[in-house]
Design a protein around this nucleic acid. Structure first.
Lengths: 230, 230
DNA sequence: CCGGCTCCTTACCGAACCCGAACAGTCCCT
DNA sequence: AGGGACTGTTCGGGTTCGGTAAGGAGCCGG
């Protein structure tokens, strides 16, 4: 598929159950993340401090040191690295969210690995947005796209895109001219690790084109995929 | 066609059908990989453990031990070497990507050898996290070809090629001076299962030449095949 | 519980493209 | 110089591919 996978950074996973740990690692790696794995809480906290990951995925029930405790200590030390919890029971959720814990998101077991990956991405997107415009607005032709504000204008006029539509356009405009296959787009925007077989991408492209109007910036490469104009 | 220069590492291929196996080996070797070939599942598993390849390409239907079983046993032993499956039927896919199998990617037969190579590269890139751009634009004479953008210019002017035409030219320009027979081009560009006759190659070469104009870079080697100028 | 929005799928249609046959031109060997 | 083999070129039929519209599932707010 030739994903051009600019490295997305290192994710720390702390999980004692090998099956789940490996699964999580597999899917995160699939999505282009570097993954560091720890099996107990104490080592997890040390790794978080040492490796400075871009995000942490923490099981709550851990030998040595609970995931919640890891998170609390990081926050105490002024480390606001995004944290996503893995939790077995729904009733643990209340303790996590809306608390001083400073969790960014959580996933209850059993979970879909795909969903976890999507949440990691979402959390990072939010963090990037908060990090004072690490993302510059992009201009291609008459279309401008602001990743931080998640706004798009075509020929000066604001365009209202849905979340998926925006992500799709942003992905294409991130590398103008670069041709992305449908699979690459499915993997990059939707988080699917699947081959083609659906027309989902086409439909959304059509939708974006319709909203952009005549300024449309998306070019079809027959038999291959789509690209934004260079 | 032999592998040149820096070896990219060893890839284990387990495939019982000699035709496919040789083709896969040829193309991987071509791309700079060392290749070790096994013909049945049991030997494949042993080889994987003994040789520690950087990636495995496994047929699913194998004598002795199914490819899925090889993968499962490797994973059980904590071996997370990237695995790419070759599968004949689409409906096998769910079992693979689904979960615990831990496959990194798969390719359905009939596949293009170039696609397989691209996937091996992609998987390794993801595993390494590093971005190694083998997708640099190439220049031969007055013709430039950009694999990522899938664009071609001749004497400075952009040239619009169809998907097949582009792949054909890219294949030739990947190794300037190297003469490819029509069979090689059919296998490499169209895929090993191509049902097209060899004259089809001629037609497409003619088309590419026409579009490139006087800058044409494709040379005929009478009785043999075609090559791009060195 | 309902209505609206978004997303995904499916089906259909028009267009682009590929293939192969046929014929013309070129090269090579004798 | 001539014949044969190989290659260049043209062109229409059949197929594949992408655009588009319509419908149903899930989600959220009311």
């Amino acid at each position: 598929m030739t994903a051009d996978t600019a490295p997305r950074g290192l994710v720390l996973v702390v999980e004692d159950e090998p099956t789940i740990a490996d699964l999580v690692r597999l899917y995160l790696a699939w999505d282009g993340f570097g993954v560091h794995l720890e099996r107990d809480g104490t080592a997890g906290l040390a790794a978080a401090r040492r490796l400075r990951p871009v995000a942490c995925v923490l099981d709550i029930a851990l030998p040595g040191l609970a995931g919640t405790e890891i998170c609390r200590r990081l926050r105490e030390a002024g480390d606001w690295t995004p944290v996503i919890f893995l939790t077995a029971r729904d009733d643990e959720v209340d303790r996590i969210v809306g608390l001083e814990l400073g969790a960014d998101d959580y996933v209850t077991k059993p979970f879909s690995p795909r969903e976890l990956v999507a949440r990691v991405r979402a959390v990072l997107r939010r963090a990037a947005g908060a990090a004072a415009g690490a993302e510059q607005p992009r201009v291609v032709g008459a279309v401008t796209l602001d990743p931080a504000r998640r706004t798009v204008t075509a020929a000066g006029a604001p365009v209202q895109l849905t979340s998926t539509e925006f992500d799709l356009l942003a992905h294409l405009m991130a590398r103008p001219g670069r041709v992305f296959t449908r699979e690459e787009l499915l993997a990059g925007v939707w988080g699917y690790a699947a081959h083609a077989g659906t027309r989902t991408v086409d439909v959304h492209v059509a939708q974006v084109r319709a909203k952009l109007g005549p300024a449309s910036v998306i070019r079809t490469h027959r038999g291959v995929g789509y690209a934004a104009d260079a």
